[in-house]
């Protein structure tokens, strides 16, 4: 099996300064030496409490942040030193209402990003129509995004994240704000991506979703990896003996055990 994502002893600090005269520096370690690999065609889940370091890990993988120590490799390339070789092959979807041009229509948003991903005119148009259909935004495609609901913006984000037919898609809480139908649609999209041999790395706070979708799950706590396995094995090894534990129970037990 090919390894498409490799994270080796990765650490990331944020340095924040306080005050403007006597500036006080504070270092916050968001990711503290984590290791994992993801194989081609896998759906890999990253779980953890708020502030555990999930988004920071993803940002390092999508070439947005430099690791403070360690190496992140995507498709065999270093995400800091060889970012140019990675950027066209991957894409990402972040949850929330950010990351779209609100004064443009959904169609114009997609066409614009298609251009930024070096997709040519005709192909870009075709791809845009396909994606609008996929996320069920065809009817609203020509309305300005500022008139969209939260879930509609989220759908647009998903479409944008697939514009370049990425080999790997990073999704950070992609189901935030989606109604059950939308969330179901996204799960179908993710499964379809897997069928096409694409890799998905996602974070979510919905344990059931992770359980249902992910081939393997890593749980991180305060920047450190505390468990990594298939959902079944996690439930077997960390659940209560002789009981059918849910992933949620496992997650709570694990995070509590690590303590505050």
């Amino acid at each position: 099996m090919d390894t498409v994502i490799e994270v080796k002893d990765v650490k990331r600090d944020y340095i924040t300064t306080k005050g403007w005269f006597l500036r006080k520096k504070k270092t916050l370690t968001a990711v503290d030496g984590i290791n994992f690999c993801v194989n081609r065609g896998e759906i890999f889940g990253l779980l953890g409490e708020n502030g555990a370091g999930k988004t920071t890990t993803i940002k390092m993988l999508i070439t947005l942040l430099a690791p403070t120590a360690g190496v992140c490799k995507v498709l065999g390339f270093d995400t800091y030193k060889e970012a140019d070789k990675i950027r066209g092959e991957i894409n990402f979807v972040f949850g929330g209402e950010m990351g779209v041009y609100r004064r443009l229509s959904a169609r114009d948003n997609l066409l614009y990003f298609a251009g930024l991903y070096k997709i040519k005119g005709k192909e870009a148009k075709k791809r845009t129509e396909e994606l609008l259909k996929l996320v069920e935004l065809e009817d609203a495609a020509d309305r300005l995004v500022e008139t969209y609901s939260k879930g509609m913006i989220q759908r647009l984000q998903i479409a944008r994240g697939l514009i370049n037919n990425p080999k790997i898609v990073f999704m950070d809480e992609p189901t935030v704000g989606l109604d059950p139908i939308g969330a179901n649609m996204l799960r179908d999209i993710i499964r379809k991506l897997k069928e096409e041999g694409r890799t998905v790395l996602l974070t979510t706070h919905y344990m059931q979703e992770a359980d249902e979708l992910c081939d393997r799950i890593a749980i991180i706590n305060k920047g450190k990896m505390i468990a990594m396995d298939t959902p079944e094995n996690l439930k077997k090894s960390y659940g209560e003996k002789g009981m059918d534990s849910t992933l949620e129970q496992v997650f709570l037990a694990l995070v509590k055990k690590e303590g505050v």
């Binding site: 947005l64 066209g88 990003f113």
Partner: peptide, 18 residues
């Protein structure tokens, strides 16, 4: 503020050009 800056930064088109 609109959260699009990271998107254009990592776009393969190159943010210099954008």
């Amino acid at each position: 503020w609109s959260g699009t800056l990271p998107l254009i930064y990592v776009a393969p088109g190159g943010f210099g050009l954008i």
